[in-house]
Design a protein around this nucleic acid. Structure first.
Lengths: 353, 353
DNA sequence: TTGTAAGCGTTATCAT
DNA sequence: ATGATAACGCTTACAA
């Protein structure tokens, strides 16, 4: 099946030297004009004779002139690109959010550079600095679950880098934020379990310091309280890797199952955590909902379709991505420093089978 | 929940003006040196006195000097970034491949710019040109299912842009390619169905001109032939949107089910197509495998875990991404034009429940 | 060992 | 209406 083929090397070399990118200078030389005239003709300024303009634009098109965006960036001190920092692209929520981000960014002529932290603080620091040094015009960030210290972002923000947080936000950084109504979503999911007859509801969540975890925990507690169910500390288990580390999820669930007063349901607070949880259940032969019922945050259409047991809280990921991008572009393109920042909260929906 | 807050504007303005990025010039001025000396001191050239070097590097660190990568790109005529063109990130295969791509690229100091075609030829043309004009040093491409004409890529390639295809390749462009052994994977999946007792096996696939479709169809046909089963044209259905368009998949399946000699199994040739197919089945109340058995290409761990009925062909997506990236960087960093190109074929595995 | 100057591709500010 | 020149931040012959 190996398919190796040779090409006459002179051909390659020819191609190699033939297609040096065309610059304004080349056009100027060929047409006997100055570079500034060519530049003006190309960029549609008024102070140019129609004849020259036509001459230049025609010739430019003919030889396939393309402005060099790097030179432009150097001059204009911006790159027309935005950086995105998420934990995993292989996560339904984030891949949908990225779609939303792209839809707006490409519309406005911005490139999107995506980087993944894989839930690691270290990778987050590296990626954020990498993007910054690569001169993105702004940053869209959803924190890694490991991140507690956000000084790497704060220092960048202090230097004037436009930043918008989405989903997992840092409250101590004063800028625009877009999130789903996690508290309400968690509340609804928990209430759904309660109304389905479950009273001993555990809570499986990711890192304890993540904004989304805190909000979801609050919603869970509120639902319990509103229905006269006592909150139990030992019913709450944290998985800092958010379901990406099988053993971690397994341990948490084993601990829950081993409790004297074993829970009869779990409210799961994350996308990969929901799949991770179901996967552990499967391996431990825990039947849903016979042995334990589940409701959880999940944006996976696959999971919703084929798993018969999960009631899922769906986030408007695409819209969140879009909104965050719009807000970021507003910050980037603002002529004067912006004084007002907003935290937009979008509604979630409950997908019940 | 709306959380608006104001900041004293003088603070913002202060920040705004205080943190103009530090350049070599600033260091030179502050230290009474020339820019070239500073540049040399920073870049560890030998022709510099240890004293000056220390002076410069210390000061640079102190004031937080960061080289401007755009200026560097302009000078060195490269951007240290590669572009990736895939159909959807929200596709297990591609998100895994992207992870592999990233792992290699970031290791070697390259940025990864991802763009999605959403299976649209038009978007593909736009994205490819967009990336090219953004001066990526090379391109990793998996064709959209709509793409028949690859001249937009060919012209770029002719101009010297290093390009590596993965998964969905264009045979007419002579460059490195990395694919899974689609024919063998299809063969194995089909044989699995045959050995499970099914004889009337249909084939659901995406666009007919995609390289992967052709290879998978070949494997399917070969498996039938090897087991003395006649190939039937009306058992093959195409879904150019690769499962992203529900109606299309539904129509195809309805046609299959409506056949006089209704098939008893389907071999599905795609990631999203597999989920799409199962989703249609669910809505049409077609039971798997009672009414119809399924085997298909899928890299979704979620699907594998929770759907009780799918036998899936798993591709080494991560490795394919890694290999493709290694090959691309080889092309990019080659000092002299490369004359030999390879088509690497990686094995698939069969995930049977 | 250090400085001067040219150059990467472009646009903006002057003159002309 | 057009051209010469400087500037964006950096590297690198070439001079000193």
């Amino acid at each position: 099946m190996k398919n190796t083929f040779k090409i006459a090397s002179y051909l390659i070399i020819l191609v190699y030297y033939m297609f040096e990118p065309v610059t304004i200078k080349d056009i100027a030389k060929a047409l006997g004009l100055s570079t500034s005239t060519v530049s003006r003709a190309l960029r549609d300024t008024y102070e140019i004779s129609p004849a020259t303009k036509k001459l230049v634009t025609d010739y430019a098109k003919e030889i396939g002139y393309k402005p060099n965006p790097i030179a432009l960036s150097l001059k204009e001190r911006r790159s027309k690109s935005i950086g995105v920092v998420v934990s995993e692209v292989a996560n339904s929520y984030f891949s949908q959010a990225v779609n939303g981000i792209e839809s707006i960014a490409y519309d406005k002529g911005y490139h999107v550079i995506i980087s993944q932290t894989h839930e690691s603080y270290e990778r987050e620091v590296i990626n954020v600095n990498h993007l910054a040094s690569r001169s993105v015009d702004g940053l869209l960030i959803s924190l890694s679950s490991q991140t507690e210290d956000v000084s790497h972002i704060k220092s960048l923000h202090d230097k004037g880098m436009p930043i918008v947080f989405f989903d997992r936000v840092a409250d101590e950084i004063i800028t625009d934020k877009v999130i789903a109504d996690n508290e309400k979503g968690a509340y609804n999911a928990t209430v759904h379990l309660i109304k389905s007859g479950y009273k001993k509801i555990a809570h499986l969540t990711s890192s304890s310091h993540l904004s989304i975890s805190i909000e979801r925990l609050t919603g869970y507690k509120k639902a319990l309280a509103d229905h006269g169910i006592a909150f139990r500390e030992d019913y709450v288990k944290f998985c800092p890797h958010g379901g990406m580390l099988y053993e971690e999820t397994e341990t948490a669930i084993k601990q829950l199952v081993a409790l004297k007063d074993k829970p009869d349901a779990i409210f799961v607070a994350g996308d990969r955590l929901s799949t991770g949880c179901l996967s552990v259940f499967k391996n431990l032969n825990i039947e849903v909902p016979k042995d334990m019922a589940i409701a959880g945050f999940s944006n996976s259409d696959v999971l919703d379709l084929f798993n018969p047991s999960l009631t899922s809280v769906r986030q408007p990921a695409y819209e969140i991505g879009q909104l965050a991008t719009e807000m970021l572009l507003r910050l980037i393109e603002a002529k004067y420093p912006i004084e007002e920042f907003e935290k937009k909260v979008l509604d979630t929906s409950l997908f019940v089978r």
